[in-house]
């Protein structure tokens, strides 16, 4: 069984990679990719908070049979529900920001944020 410290560390490293990308890149598309990486890191962190050792996916099936107070076999389903919401909202924001990037490219003829602004 993998310790959840591994998942926490992966989430932190992904978050820092995304932050570094947002801070240093000049290309809008690359900034958006970095933002998506950060988002994935936060989602992974939230799912890891609900991780329980030897826990199964929180879906009652024929093989799991029954659950009760004395045989709780599941991981925590609440963070997974929150992440489901976060993924959909991430999709919406990514689509909107990509359209804004298209408009900026049409307007200035470049995706480099340092060359934007001023005269057309």
């Amino acid at each position: 069984m993998i310790s959840s410290i591994f998942f926490y560390s992966t989430a932190f490293v992904l978050f820092l990679i995304g932050l570094f990308g947002v801070l240093t890149r000049k290309n809008i598309i690359k900034i958006l990719v970095s933002l998506s990486i950060t988002e994935t890191a936060v989602n992974l962190f939230l799912v890891t908070v609900g991780y329980i050792k030897n826990g199964k996916a929180p879906i009652l099936t024929n093989t799991i049979g029954s659950i009760g107070m004395n045989n709780l076999k599941f991981v925590d389903p609440l963070p997974q529900a929150l992440v489901l919401t976060a993924i959909v909202i991430g999709l919406g924001t990514t689509a909107l920001s990509l359209v804004i990037a298209i408009k900026l490219y049409k307007n200035y003829g470049t995706l480099n944020i340092t060359k934007m602004g001023g005269k057309r």
């Binding site: 929180p58 879906i59 009652l60 029954s66 009760g68 107070m69 599941f74 529900a81």
Partner: peptide, 28 residues
């Protein structure tokens, strides 16, 4: 743990307060 609860069996238990087998769906 002292809140009253009962064992839930797949395909048998009836009329729970919420009847979906997928716990994430039941929350969402």
């Amino acid at each position: 743990s002292s809140v009253p609860s009962k064992t839930i069996t797949f395909g048998k238990t009836k009329n729970l307060e919420e009847g979906s087998a997928n716990e994430v769906t039941s929350i969402v």
